[in-house]
Design a protein around this nucleic acid. Structure first.
Lengths: 253, 253
DNA sequence: GCATTTATTCATCGGTTGATGATTAATAGC
DNA sequence: GCTATTAATCATCAACCGATGAATAAATGC
């Protein structure tokens, strides 16, 4: 007589083992796997466009495990956002430190900005999809009115203050306002460029590619540095005239 | 004996009248009211962060009416995004036309960019909350990887091509790639600046305000134009040297 | 003045969502 | 070797979601 046993798995999805897994060297780190899957989804669709079920399915774990590690969906998001921020923040500070030390009194705005951008652009050029996702995530948060400004500030302000301190040295005539606004323009240009929305591909009819980080790397620092210098250096012709604006005339007159 | 009638409204929400409303001059345009409410919500929380119930509640209509006018939630979103786009696109094209005609051969990059920015910045400075919301919405879409690039392209590419045509005249030595990338930087800087995330307020410890559109207006055109000129004008010292980058040296060596 | 179209609310459906308590199994501490 | 802790799945809940067909009432067209 045949022993009674589950004759068939019946469904395609076989039951996963319950309870704590064996401590095997080959067992994957579930926490990291969840973060990777969450990063992928959040970067594509934002906080509200993602369900924890999708993330769990991608990470091949139960949804309850997400709550076990990160409590709430928001907790998961914050963990994703913070994880890589630490890495690049450290690299950027070091890069600026090195440049400032090497350049000495020959410090320039372009040099500082280049030192600030280098670590990010290098990571982007490396081609790691996970970092690409993360940059896209930053771009979204940076442009989220509700809580984006607060999140960005909490995460990145220390590095930005370090950047601005170096720029102040390179541009001694700059006002504080000009420095902050110039950085704001830099921030917008950088995050959009790194977010790979495919916009420039369409606009240029395929001539330029969102994924071409080398092109961005060559152009961004000179472009932005030039803007900084224009606003923050005393112009020989006088500042007011340099800023005069075009007045839109009424076409009916 | 008392007449049988609904003694009390019971709930705070009284029943609304069913059927087509009387054509009174005082009756509000429901369609516009829905769009306004939707704009408000979408601009704050993005497409997925908004429920049609919230929008309906704000517009004081039933959710079925949203489907009556816009079919799906996505249809509502597209209608919101398209409504004001037409207005500013018309204004921006006209502004560039006027400038090009007036400037003649004295056309400059800063002049063109200024003509392009003027209509938007003027609307922003006017202080209408509905336009502020709309600009914040653009910023979010611009940085949405999944379908943002496509939506932005469909909506704004004609104007951008008009802008680039004018810039090509002002910068005859520019390569196509430089022009497109420079515009991309402009796009990122502009949309972030208009989205009022409060980031710069915190960063500058209250010195700069997200809502100070006059400050943005004074600074953006010179900043961006300077970047364009740097990339797109032949430099007297030669282009390659002007773009040389700072190499990060290994701190352990 | 009657029939059709337009504009609105009502009632409700099937599916999804974030979250949680119960259960199971392995490890770590003493 | 026993107990407490950690790490995982299972089963399920109440709330909410977008959508839709039916009902209703005014306006419009003939």
């Amino acid at each position: 007589m045949a022993v009674k046993r589950p004759v068939k798995p019946k469904s395609v999805k076989q039951r996963a083992r319950r309870g704590r897994p064996l401590k095997n060297d080959a067992t994957p780190d579930m926490r990291e796997r969840i973060l990777d899957a969450a990063e992928d989804h959040f970067s594509r669709h934002g906080f509200w466009g993602v369900t924890i079920r999708e993330v769990a399915q991608d990470a091949k774990v139960d949804t309850a495990l997400l709550h076990y590690y990160f409590d709430t969906k928001r907790g998961l998001f914050d963990a994703v956002f913070g994880r890589r921020a630490e890495v690049i923040n450290r690299e950027r500070i070091e890069s600026i430190d090195v440049y400032e030390r090497e350049a000495g009194s020959a410090i320039t705005a372009e040099g500082v900005i280049n030192a600030f951008l280098q670590p990010i652009l290098e990571r982007a050029a490396q081609g790691d999809q996970r970092w690409h996702n993360y940059f896209a995530l930053i771009a979204q948060v940076n442009n989220t009115p509700a809580w984006g400004g607060e999140t960005m500030a909490r995460t990145f302000d220390p590095v930005i203050h370090r950047l601005i301190r170096a720029l102040r040295k390179a541009l001694p005539d700059a006002t504080e306002e000009d420095l902050y606004w110039s950085y704001h323009f830099l921030s917008g240009a950088l995050t959009l460029s790194l977010s790979q929305t495919g916009r420039i591909d369409r606009l240029s009819n395929g001539l330029c590619k969102s994924s071409d980080f080398e092109s961005i790397g060559h152009r961004m620092a000179p472009f932005i540095a030039s803007g900084f210098e224009r606003l923050c250096k005393p112009s020989p012709v006088g500042r007011a005239s340099a800023r005069q604006t075009h007045r839109l005339t009424d076409p009916r007159s």
